[in-house]
């Protein structure tokens, strides 16, 4: 299994959910609302990632960056939940259990970081159903490979579109970690960790299509509105 297409074939291909697409349209509505209220979106210099409390985070981030970060957040939710559920199922053993524990902790850290960055603009965690893939080692590894390859392609597709330098710097640092994850899971699964000299990006449309085909997302994420960010992990 060396491509997303194989993963899509492996699972069913009916797009019945469209959860990620829904996320995007939520984000687009938010952006329209921001323009309506005439909010000034300052540059990267004003990003307050640490420090004060309250709905600080997205203030100062370009609207398009908020949109991309929310898209990435859903992918991180998906991965974090997948590993957490696999750990809880006690189905994993040996090196695979060890790797899953470390990778899971990292994906949860990514979720936390994005929630902090986005504050009140963050989409909520969807509800997931991993279709039994977290309950046996081989299906777990196969799915992990597909999800990680997907994340690498997704970050790669979005990184050049990010405007704020601190966000871009963080995104590329996460992008390469996802690539490490996919190589690690591939090694454990017994397939080549790095097939080609160049990793290609994937558009949102194709990522959404693959994610939808998995039926892993069973409820649509919602904007938290004025609510405080929901911390997880």
């Amino acid at each position: 299994m060396d491509s997303f297409q194989d993963f899509a074939d492996f699972l069913t291909t009916v797009d019945r959910d469209g959860a990620l697409a829904e996320t995007r349209s939520h984000a687009e509505r938010t952006l329209s609302r921001r323009r309506f209220f005439g909010l000034t979106l300052a540059g990267a210099g004003t990003i307050a990632i640490t420090g004060s409390t309250g709905a600080r985070a997205a203030g100062g981030l370009p609207a398009s960056d908020v949109d991309i970060l929310n898209y990435a957040l859903v992918l991180e939710y998906l991965q974090a939940s997948f590993y957490t559920e696999a750990e809880r199922s006690s189905a994993l053993t040996g090196k695979t259990a060890e790797a899953a524990r470390i990778v899971g902790a990292t994906e949860r850290a990514h979720v936390k970081a994005f929630l902090k960055l986005l504050g009140s603009e963050a989409v909520k965690r969807p509800t997931f159903d991993f279709q039994g893939t977290t309950e046996q080692q081989r299906p777990f590894l196969k799915t992990a490979v597909a999800l990680e390859d997907l994340a690498v392609a997704a970050y790669k597709g979005q990184a050049p579109k990010l405007q704020a330098n601190p966000v871009l710097a963080a995104a590329v640092g996460i992008h390469s970690v996802e690539a490490r994850h996919t190589a690690w899971m591939r090694q454990l699964f017994g397939i080549t960790p790095a097939v080609d000299a160049f990793d290609l990006p994937a558009s949102r449309r194709s990522i959404n299509r693959v994610v939808a085909s998995t039926h892993f997302i069973v409820s649509r994420p919602k904007m938290t509105g004025r609510n405080k960010p929901e911390f997880t992990g």
Partner: peptide, 28 residues
């Protein structure tokens, strides 16, 4: 970006062969 993730795959690959943690940091 098309190159760096392949370097990251190499890093993780050789780390895994050596029995080391392939992805030690949440952000590289």
């Amino acid at each position: 970006a098309e190159i760096v993730s392949v370097e990251a795959r190499h890093a993780a690959w050789v780390r895994a062969i050596a029995g080391q943690v392939a992805a030690p940091d949440p952000v590289d």
